[in-house]
């Protein structure tokens, strides 16, 4: 029996969360939850509707060293935000690739993060930008690195009594980009993607649809600036980081080869 609780304030929300230790579904934009319930993929039946809290948890602002995106900001809002456009074009590019404009008007950044799909489009760029998430509970806030947020397939560093309240992205002068290869050019699910951010001999890399959960490519990052690496070398190095799967949309082999090509092409570019 599906039940939906509708807290009107954060206080009410935490009262609910503290009362019972349950793995609630938080209805944010609903773009993952609604289709999954319909298809019977999502079996959890206890929902908490966050729409009453949306005003307080939506918007973008900055402090001295970070841009902070509140968790229920939609991707349509993100795309239009001046601060984000100025500082993180790779993230803006990714946000335009989430579904189509209809989905972007509803989908929130927290939903994308918590859904934790290997194909989630905002995550590779956020990972390479060293984003952090703020987890809020009645006990207060804790901040953790996004790279530490994912521990396994749909296994996240978040407790039942917490919600994501903010996404913190440190400003930097790194060059960053995001390349998506999808099933089509809009309303497409990513077959494989690569995000990167670099400066001098430092690089952060992350790939979509390449592993069971979103993560950085640490092994590849470490060896990225070695001299005279070949395509073959990257094939070996990348195997330490990723192991893409076959599925309805593509083959693991294709995903791997494309990722190898993208990484190698970037390598050649930066060697110049």
């Amino acid at each position: 029996m599906i039940s939906v609780l509708r807290p009107k304030t954060t206080k009410e929300l935490f009262e609910i969360l503290d009362k019972e230790d349950k793995n609630y579904l938080f209805l944010a934009g609903g773009t993952d939850i609604m289709p999954s319930i319909k298809k019977g993929i999502e079996k959890r039946e206890d929902l908490i509707d966050l729409s009453f809290l949306k005003k307080g948890f939506s918007g973008v602002y900055r402090d001295k060293t970070n841009i902070i995106v509140k968790s229920l900001t939609t991707f349509a809002k993100i795309q239009k935000d001046e601060l984000l456009n100025k500082h993180f074009p790779s993230f803006i590019k990714a946000s335009k690739l989430i579904g189509g404009y209809t989905i972007q008007g509803m989908a929130t950044i927290a939903g994308n993060i918590v859904n934790a799909s290997p194909a989630a489009d905002s995550l590779p760029s956020l990972l390479t930008l060293n984003a952090k998430v703020t987890l809020l509970s009645s006990n207060g806030e804790r901040i953790i690195e996004l790279k530490d947020f994912y521990k396994g397939y749909k296994n996240l560093e978040i407790k039942n009594n917490e919600i994501i309240s903010n996404i913190i992205i440190p400003t930097s002068d790194y060059q960053a980009d995001f390349i998506e290869v999808g099933t089509r050019k809009a309303m497409s699910i990513t077959k494989v993607s690569l995000a990167y951010a670099y400066k001098d001999k430092n690089i952060f890399l992350s790939a979509g649809s390449a592993f069971a959960y979103p993560k950085r490519l640490f092994a590849t990052e470490k060896r990225f600036f070695e001299k005279d690496l070949t395509k073959k070398d990257f094939e070996i190095i990348l195997k330490e980081d990723v192991s893409p799967l076959d599925d309805i949309r593509s083959s693991g082999n294709y995903r791997f080869n494309v990722l190898r090509n993208l990484v190698f092409s970037l390598y050649q570019e930066l060697q110049k």
Binding site: T183, R184, K185, A186, M187, I189, I248, R249
Partner: peptide, 28 residues
């Protein structure tokens, strides 16, 4: 370029939805 039907192990269409049966979008 993209349209194709795939079968699952039961002989049922696997991609009977617009997410995985890929018709052209306006960007294509």
């Amino acid at each position: 370029l993209t349209e194709n039907i795939v079968f699952d192990k039961k002989g049922k269409y696997w991609n009977a939805d617009f997410t995985n049966y890929i018709i052209p979008s306006i960007m294509d």
